[in-house]
Design a protein around this nucleic acid. Structure first.
Lengths: 210, 210
DNA sequence: GTTATCGGATACATTCACGTATCGGATACG
DNA sequence: CGTATCCGATACGTGAATGTATCCGATAAC
């Protein structure tokens, strides 16, 4: 019987997201999650075997959502002319619940560094996400009339962009007033992207002074 | 009486570093720390009031050490000619216990995002560290015969470099074989630094195609 | 509409980590 | 060398979170 089941499961996961974001994995009791979801611990143990399993399930759902959202954004691309500043601006945008997700995924990353099983899970998701990002970036670059310079690979570049997003976000969330989210991206990504690309039509070798 | 005191305190902090890195803050019992240090819980409660206080103390000692190490590195700068690749290579180096520290500081960062008190502490430390990094970077750029382009500030640039280090490190620790630490730095920092600087002697405006 | 099964609530036992209060040994001081 | 004080060990009580076992209501099948 499954009319209630998916709903309670979803509400438990929603509650887990809130609770983990608020107090972290270790700081969250199973009963916290149940209270937020409006259930008792009975409902929890009927759906999950342990808090770890809940954490994994939460990550899976979250990963699916992120991917889904990203694909939609990619599909809904404006057809206008694209500049490097536009590209950077796109990478400087952050959703409202990005913070909640950041807290949970970062903690999951930590657990992945310690636990190979979690690491595989995370790596798999990241690979899919990078794949999407690579396609999107390639398309936007092409639309901007640019191409990667010889020796610059798409995947490492996407890894770099993700690293920047994550690293900058950490600083922004610790000091929101000193560094609003997106500041560093807008400030430096045009230069970085400009340095690793060249005009597709007339590939001019820019002078390097390093 | 203080012959033993500092030693036990140091051993407790060492043990805490190990334990927190291995199992995280929430996953570490006070007794874990004491066992690793070779004491009982009596020693702990004689030195700390709670696990949180231990965590804070650990962070303070760690912050001091990082700063100290960084200053020494800065002082021990080789006098040789400096290129952008050298600069990038310096930012691509990672100590062996960097991983341990990464795990602990990242968790502290998470707690700082949630707790204003921890945030202040972290922000203060980061500011000091950035100050050092700014001086060091300025010196090395000068030595390389470069200067920042108009509109590029030193502090945001250092923030950016730190963001890159942290973000790249996260990926490297999750997939050490796919992305050895330092890879992204070596690959992209020369381009980035080249794009935000210009030759000090003959300030030439490089063509931008974005 | 009746029945069987499923899902969540309730109640209980257990384990475990915590904090405190006290004791014994070691260290500095006279 | 004796003594007072400090520090870490030991022992205990307590609260809390966990997991399980059972019960009851709801839902689907017939």
């Amino acid at each position: 019987m499954t009319k209630r089941r998916p709903q309670t499961l979803a509400r438990l996961l929603d509650a887990a997201l809130e609770a983990f974001a608020a107090n972290g994995f270790g700081g969250t009791r199973i009963e916290d999650v149940c209270e937020r979801a409006g259930y008792t611990r009975g409902a929890f143990y009927s759906n999950f075997a342990s808090k770890e399993e809940l954490f994994f399930a939460l990550f899976d759902r979250h990963a699916a959502r992120v991917l889904e959202r990203f694909e939609k954004q990619a599909a809904a691309l404006g057809p206008g002319a694209v500049t490097l500043a536009d590209l950077a601006a796109g990478l400087a945008e952050f959703d409202d619940d990005e913070r909640t997700w950041y807290l949970v995924t970062t903690e999951f990353t930590l657990s992945a560094i310690r636990d190979p099983q979690a690491a595989r899970r995370l790596a798999e998701h990241d690979a899919r996400l990078r794949g999407e990002a690579m396609r999107l970036l390639a398309e936007r670059l092409a639309r901007a009339g640019l191409r990667l310079r010889p020796g610059v690979e798409l995947e490492p570049l996407v890894r770099m962009l993700i690293a920047i997003r994550e690293g900058a976000l950490a600083q922004s969330y610790v000091e929101p007033e000193a560094l609003p989210p997106g500041t560093l991206e807008r400030q430096f990504l045009p230069a970085l992207l400009g340095a690793v690309t060249e005009v597709a039509a007339e590939p001019v070798a820019e002078p390097e002074h390093g």
